[in-house]
């Protein structure tokens, strides 16, 4: 029991460290897409670790914390993908040095042919 509690607290602290890392990444990264990457990865792992940690400290809540964690792990990448795609479509191009961009509108046929 004491082992579970200790493990839980360690996971909570590690998780909050990752959350801080994600926030730092959002402030320090140079352009939008790098910020999205840093933010999503770090906050997702931070949230997963902290929330499961709470479930380990108090095992009665474990199932509930598990489903909150699953929900966050499922929705966070979807949300950040949605932001990235919409910013690309609205004209915010990433700073590319190597000029490799296979997602250019002219490279793929556009599905928005049915505009009103």
């Amino acid at each position: 029991m004491i082992l579970l509690t200790t493990l839980g607290y360690i996971m909570i602290i590690l998780g909050s460290l990752f959350l801080l890392l994600g926030a730092l990444g959002i402030v320090r990264m140079p352009d939008l897409y790098n910020r999205i990457q840093a933010g999503t990865k770090a906050t997702t792992l931070g949230a997963l670790s902290s929330i499961i940690g709470v479930g380990l400290v108090n095992p009665n809540w474990f199932f509930k914390t598990l489903i909150i964690a699953i929900f966050i792990v499922l929705t966070n990448p979807i949300g950040s993908h949605s932001i990235a795609r919409s910013s690309y479509k609205s004209g915010l191009k990433p700073e590319l040095q190597s000029e490799i961009d296979e997602y250019k509108p002219e490279n793929i046929q556009d599905e928005r042919s049915d505009l009103r």
Binding site: S16, G39, T44, S50, V54, T65, I68, I72
Partner: peptide
């Protein structure tokens, strides 16, 4: 878009804050 990314991060952090507050 930067603001939306920050909003996404903020809300995830607040969810974690709520869970730890419940502990």
């Amino acid at each position: 878009s930067d603001r939306v990314v920050a909003l996404d991060t903020l809300t995830t952090i607040i969810s974690v804050l709520l869970v730890t507050s419940s502990l």
